[in-house]
Design a binder for these strands. Structure first.
Length: 524
RNA sequence: GCGCUCGUAGUUCAAUGGAUAGAACGGGAGCUUGCGGAGCUUCUAAUAGAGGUUCGAAUCCUCUCGAGCGCACCA
């Protein structure tokens, strides 16, 4: 990766020039083209440490860098107040094309994870109804994050936690409703579900039993929806009832906590000492009635994940579970987990007009309805565009309207165009690229080289919205190139070179869309 | 009351503390007798407010105003 190379060059130059590297060297991509392809503020940071003028330091470094990297840069310049700007040479850009074509779907892979194991809990949901548009945010971002981490060299397990414990409040409420003694979760969907399960329900002895029965059926629907319709492959469906309670994991967890004296009795209940591990207070894990709380089973579940040997555990929760974050972080420390426990809190998805989507209200917008309305590709793109910590306000009618002019089609159109050119040219496998030097060609080549950096950055900070943004930039660079440079022409050498570039562009665009789980059609 | 996440063009969203705040949609004006016009070019318009830190702030700190979500022996 060029960015890494430049960083190393700079560090070496700093050592040679006698400037000790204190803070990590930051190489950025300036927005403004005239500021180069890469730039660094290193000299400005070093200036305060060495009490020297930043420009003096920068000039000094520039000399060393140029000596160490003949041919890599078109030029390196020092600009006020002390930026060092790097302009990559054409030769270098051209030389990278064959590598992309050889790497194909592996292009963009970076070795950050080094094969370490990561677990992503995409969704933990009550099986009391269909998934709503809020769950969509968990599903899509979790799935895509998993793809990105995979690409960055982690071994990722996608997990879905089903809150189906028979002793839980929501399952009992569901049971009540099913038996006509309540109205929680009552929707048309549930009504028809009850209808279809009528014979079985007549034999049921308790509300809880009824709840469990219906929940299982609902869960089956949701599971099928996720796999078939959303195309998300969950590696591990974890039933709270079957995998945690039935296997006595809750019991064992409590026993362990008691032995370690991490819980104590007060007012008839058992409390866990989270306050000693960074939380504001302690919490009840076993009620006065002897019933364990959800917290205890969640702790047992997390212990289970830790025991399975994951180096990184990522939970993706809705903002309504935000209060749970401190608890679980404290628990992580309490259990002595040595990996990273990261909890991503997604802000809620609302409907235009601010109406909160609740399963308890009669009319909800299900994720299925939305996907049917705007299509899966558009839906995924739509969700991914937004940073996870901003509220998402979906205007359903607009989303639907946009489906015909959704930006995702812009990218897919570029891909289809590429395929059509390659098809027409019947490109042979040999490539040549040393004739590529039109500004639009250079721009496109630079875009292609950003991809591995994108993977690295995103695997680090989880800012998934970079992916759709990049897709658009890349597509725009291609469309521009297409507009300015005729690919298939009389000039055979040039044709060959441009076809190589087109092929490389196809690979990178396809790889990016793959990461987002969006299709890359050959024709539209 | 306390905590978390926010407040950016008309709208929906971007912007690892960087150099002229970017897209998309909307609205205005253009481009092609050629590889897909679902494209290209161009104009329009924004950092809620007030202080502070910094060579440099949409970004960090403080306060004000506004929005959403939490604050259970619910999950």
């Amino acid at each position: 990766m060029l960015r890494t190379e430049i960083r190393k060059l700079l560090e070496k130059a700093a050592i040679e020039a006698g400037f000790k590297v204190v803070s990590p060297v930051k190489i950025e991509r300036p927005e403004e083209e005239s500021h180069g392809d890469y730039s660094t503020n290193f000299a400005m940071q070093a200036a305060s440490n060495f009490k020297m003028a930043p420009k003096y330091i920068a000039d000094n470094l520039k000399g060393h860098i140029l000596n160490m990297s003949p041919g890599l840069f078109e030029k390196v310049e020092v600009v006020d107040p002390g930026f060092i700007n790097f302009f990559v040479s054409k030769k270098y850009l051209q030389g990278r094309i064959p590598g992309i074509i050889e790497d194909k779907d592996k292009y963009g892979r970076v070795e950050m994870g080094g094969g370490s194991k990561a677990n992503i809990e995409l969704i933990s949901a009550n099986p009391t109804g269909q998934l709503h548009i809020g769950n969509g945010r968990n599903a899509f971002s979790g799935d895509v994050l998993a793809n990105v981490l995979n690409k960055a060299g982690f071994k990722v397990t996608r997990e879905y936690f089903i809150n189906d414990a028979g002793n839980s409040k929501q399952i009992n409420e569901l049971g009540k409703t099913v038996l006509g003694k309540g109205e929680s979760y009552l929707t048309d969907y549930l009504r028809s579900k009850i209808e279809s399960l009528r014979p079985k329900l007549e034999k049921v002895k308790s509300e809880s039993e009824a709840g469990v029965l219906v929940a299982a059926s609902i869960q089956k629907d949701n599971q099928e929806f996720i796999e078939k319709k959303l195309g998300i492959k969950i590696d591990n469906w974890v039933s709270e009832e079957k995998a945690i309670y039935k296997k006595n994991k809750v019991e064992k967890m409590l026993k362990w906590l008691k032995e370690k004296q991490l819980v104590y009795q007060k007012e008839g209940a058992w409390w866990i000492k989270t306050s000693q591990f960074g939380d504001e207070k302690d919490w009840v894990v076993v009620r006065e009635t002897g019933q364990p709380t959800y917290l205890l089973s969640d702790i047992a579940y997390h212990k289970d994940k830790m025991d399975r040997g994951f180096d990184k555990i990522i939970d993706i929760w809705g903002a309504d579970h935000q209060g749970h974050v401190q608890k679980m972080k404290s628990v992580g420390r309490m259990l002595g987990y040595e990996g990273d426990l990261e909890i991503l809190v997604l802000q809620l998805v609302t409907l235009k007009g601010g109406e909160r989507l609740s399963k308890r209200k009669g009319e909800i917008v299900t994720l299925e309805k939305l996907v049917d309305e705007i299509g899966l590709d558009a839906a995924r793109f739509f969700y991914l565009q937004k940073s996870l910590d901003t509220h998402m306000d979906i205007d359903v009618s607009l989303a639907k309207e946009q489906s015909t002019k959704n930006p995702v089609f812009y990218a897919q159109y570029a891909h289809a165009r590429i395929c059509s050119i390659l098809e027409k040219a019947k490109a042979d496998k040999k490539f040549s690229q040393d004739l590529l030097n039109h500004p639009s060609e250079l721009k496109l080549m630079k875009e292609l080289l950003k991809f591995p950096e994108l993977v690295e950055d995103t695997a680090q900070d989880y800012q998934l919205q970079r992916l759709p943004a990049y897709t658009l930039e890349l597509s725009a660079a291609f469309h521009q190139f297409y507009h300015d440079c005729r690919v298939i022409s009389e000039n055979k050498k040039l044709t060959k070179a441009r076809l190589s570039l087109v092929l490389a562009a196809k690979i990178v665009l396809k790889n990016t869309l793959d990461l987002m789980g969006i299709s890359a059609p050959d024709k539209m």
